[in-house]
Computed example of a mutant assay.
Amino acid sequence: MTYEELLTQTALADEQIIVMTAENRALVRNLPGILGKRFIDTGITEQTMIGAAAGLALRDRVPVVHALAAFLTMRAFEFVRTDVGIANLPVKLSGFIPGFLSDANGPTHQAIEDISIMRGIPNLTVFAPADEDDLIKMLPEIWASDDPAYTRINTRQTGYEHTPFEIGKAEVVAEGSDVTILTYGLLFEQALIALEFLRKEGLSVGLINMRSLKPVDEEAILNAASQSKLLVTLEDHFLTGGLYTIVAEVLLKYYSTARVLPIALSEKWFKPALLPDVLQHEGFTGKQIAEKILGYKTRYQQPPVLTPQFSE
């Protein structure tokens, strides 16, 4: 089943659902003829679309809105925050080409801070499916929830069959005592490759598809921290505010610590190219990820020792 087929099926079964777009019809191009007046294209006006969606939600509708992730989260930020988040309305935000999926686009079209800014909005939930199978398993729960939601849309096919989805729960793919990779979205498929590389090196490797970033599965993070000598946060997002920050917040909340290697974009946008070339150039292929982990483990074989310094 595709994204459009799922949305069509869901909308035909529930007349409360309204499909909206800011002139981004790539994944919903057949819906105008099917839904008629329940399909609304506002043009390139993300702020207007969000304001209209909030108004429809106040009238017991469930708007599923579509735009490029960069513009949906940044250009319309104030409207999402004020009209949707603060009001706690069930508007469902579908962000197209997030992270490295915006491979051929420059910085203006790269959504690599979207997780950070969306999870800071009150009441808004945040999700990042690993691939199309994960997306199709996740969206029915997300759309059925009364909460506003932002989802990184990812329709890539990986051949991996995911477990059923529950909001606030991660998918534990494998457990490991040496290394556990925590990731979400597009880089899940590269994490699978990295896992196999590391296992060939004799390491016990775990992999967790975080998929639900707000609410996040705190138990999964804490279990991984207690079971593995090293946690790796892997994401096509800026280092600040993404999964690395989420893990730090969880560990601090529960008076815990861990050795954590973040693999993310740090203070720079990625160079536009075809996706395989972007991954290679930025160092995010499965092989490169495994090499970074092996290099880190070589430098730090012992568990962290904290020596607090106090001054009077």
Rank of each mutant, 00 (worst) to 15 (best):
K292T: 03
V305T: 15
N30K: 15
A87G: 07
A170L: 00
G95P: 03
L243A: 03
T21S: 00
L182H: 05
W143K: 06
M20E: 00
D114P: 02
A264N: 14
P303F: 02
L275Y: 11
N30D: 14
L265Q: 10
N24K: 09
A130Q: 14
N123I: 13
L135P: 05
L139R: 11
E201G: 03
Y254D: 05
K271L: 00
D114K: 00
F100N: 03
V64I: 10
Q227G: 00
A67C: 15
D217H: 12
Q47W: 03
L279E: 04
L251E: 01
L279Y: 04
F100M: 03
L6W: 15
S266E: 15
I34S: 05
T245Y: 00
A149Y: 08
F188Y: 13
T240M: 14
E171D: 14
A258W: 08
S102E: 10
G55I: 14
V173K: 04
A52S: 14
Q9I: 00
G159Y: 02
H162I: 02
L101D: 06
E282F: 12
F100L: 04
N223I: 15
Q9H: 09
M74K: 06
F188L: 10
P32C: 06
I50Q: 03
A52N: 12
E166P: 04
E171G: 10
G185R: 03
L58A: 13
E235Y: 10
D147M: 12
T180Y: 02
A258C: 07
V232D: 02
T180G: 04
A13W: 08
V80R: 01
G283W: 08
K229Q: 12
I40L: 14
A87M: 15
G176W: 11
A174Q: 15
F39G: 06
L192A: 08
M118P: 01
M118L: 03
G85V: 11
I50M: 07
P63Q: 08
R38M: 09
I263T: 13
A54Q: 04
Y255G: 11
Q301S: 15
L306I: 08
L192S: 04
L275G: 12
S177H: 15
Q288S: 10
Y296I: 03
K137R: 15
T245D: 15
I153R: 06
G286N: 03
D60V: 03
V216K: 07
A87E: 09
Q190H: 05
G51Q: 02
I289K: 08
L306S: 11
S256R: 15
Q280V: 13
T307G: 08
L6P: 02
I142S: 04
L213A: 13
